[in-house]
Every structure is written in structure tokens, then in C-alpha cells.
Simulated assay, not measured.
Amino acid sequence: MALVTPNAAQASARWYHEHLFWNTTVIDQSVVLPLGNGLVAFSVPADYLGRVHRHLQRSGLRMPQTVIDECEAPAVILAESDGAVIGQCQMPDGVRYLMVPAVIELPLLPFSAERKKRWLSAPDPHRRWLLSATCVLAALTTATHSYQGTPGHRTETAQPRTLVG
């Protein structure tokens, strides 16, 4: 009798579910995490991540669970939906706010830097909580603030206004 070993996608999905309590599923040999049930994400240009990380460290916070893909430019930062109403109009340039019905493809296990899709900041079963979406948005806004004066980015200045009434 031969032992049947589960494939990497099935084993990874099971690990995420058992250790992090994430509602993962396998689609085409990829582990997929549907957003919802308190889970949201931010699609972020990879060149923002260093500044976001430094800002969070200065604030005494760990970098949230972040998936990067060597083949695609945006990284994905997971966050807890904290009840705040967040819209795309609040996002810094290049950042997209993701919620239901979006899904996130997670890296396969074991966590490895050699894989094309990997964790920049891996989830820890002993520290399962996520930063709130408001906290991540504040870090993104602060980290991208330095971009506002560069070419190709919109800058706004205060204009005097006349109040009527």
C-alpha cells in the first residue's frame, strides 16, 4: 500500500486554515483566501513597502502580513476590517483597497524565498491578529506622502476661499 501525500496546495490550504483560521480554498493548484468576514487587503506598489515598514517600526508596530509576487508589481497587505468606511478615493496614488468579492492568492508552503509568490512578512500562528485597515491606511498615506511632490503625482495647495453667508 503506497502512502498518498497531499499536494503542496492542499497541504498549504490546510495549514492556513488550521493554524491561522483563514477560510482558504484550493483553485488550480493555488491557495486562495477570499476577503470578507473581517478581512480586507491593500494592493500596494512594491516600492512603497520599505517606507511603510519603516513608518510602522517607528510607531512600534510589526509589518502586517504581506504577500509579494516576483512576477507582478503590486504587493498585497492583509488587514482587519475595523468597521471604518474606507473608499478608493482615500487611497494614495497606486494603492487599491480590496474587499469582498476579491480573493488573494497565498504562497505555498513551506515558506520559501525561492518561490515567485512569497511572504514578505509571514503570518505567525502565535500572533494571528492583523493590523486594522485604518492603521494600514495611515501607514500607507504617511509613507507615500514624500511622493506627492514628484513629477506625475498630484499636489494640491491651499487656496483662499470666500465664505458666503
Rank of each mutant, 00 (worst) to 15 (best):
W119T: 13
A75E: 06
A102F: 12
E114Q: 14
G94S: 09
P123L: 11
F42N: 01
E80Y: 06
P74Y: 08
P123S: 07
P101T: 11
R128V: 14
A41D: 08
S132C: 10
Y97R: 02
M63W: 10
W119D: 07
H126S: 12
Q65F: 14
A113D: 14
D124F: 11
E105L: 09
A122T: 14
M91S: 02
P92N: 04
G87D: 05
A122H: 07
I86V: 06
L131G: 04
E105V: 15
A113H: 09
G87F: 04
S81P: 00
Y97P: 02
V100Y: 12
V44W: 00
T66R: 00
P74S: 12
V103I: 10
L108Q: 07
V103P: 00
F42K: 04
G87V: 01
R54G: 06
I86L: 09
V67K: 02
A133M: 07
V67F: 02
A113I: 15
W129L: 09
M99T: 15
A84G: 10
P45R: 05
Q57N: 15
R62P: 07
G83H: 09
V44E: 00
S43C: 09
V95S: 00
L108Y: 03
L140A: 03
R62I: 00
T141E: 02
R128T: 13
Q90E: 13
P45Q: 07
Y97T: 03
A75I: 07
H53F: 10
A139N: 03
I68A: 06
Q88R: 06
D93S: 07
L49F: 10
L98M: 15
V52A: 02
G87K: 02
E80T: 13
A139F: 03
V52S: 01
E114G: 08
H55W: 08
E70G: 15
S59T: 14
T66P: 03
G50Y: 03
G83Q: 15
V100A: 08
Q90H: 08
L106M: 04
R96P: 00
S121K: 07
M99E: 15
R54F: 05
L109Q: 15
A122S: 15
L56G: 04
T134V: 11
L108N: 04
D93Q: 04
T142R: 00
I77R: 06
D82I: 10
L106V: 05
L78S: 04
V76M: 04
A46M: 14
A41V: 07
C71Y: 13
I68H: 00
R127F: 13
D93V: 01
L61Q: 14
A102K: 09
R96I: 06
F111E: 13
L78V: 05
E80S: 15
E70M: 10
H53L: 08
A73D: 10
E72P: 06
L131D: 06
M99W: 12
S132H: 14
R62Y: 11
R62S: 12
I68S: 03
Q90R: 10
L120H: 09
E72Y: 09
P45V: 02
Q90S: 08
S43N: 13
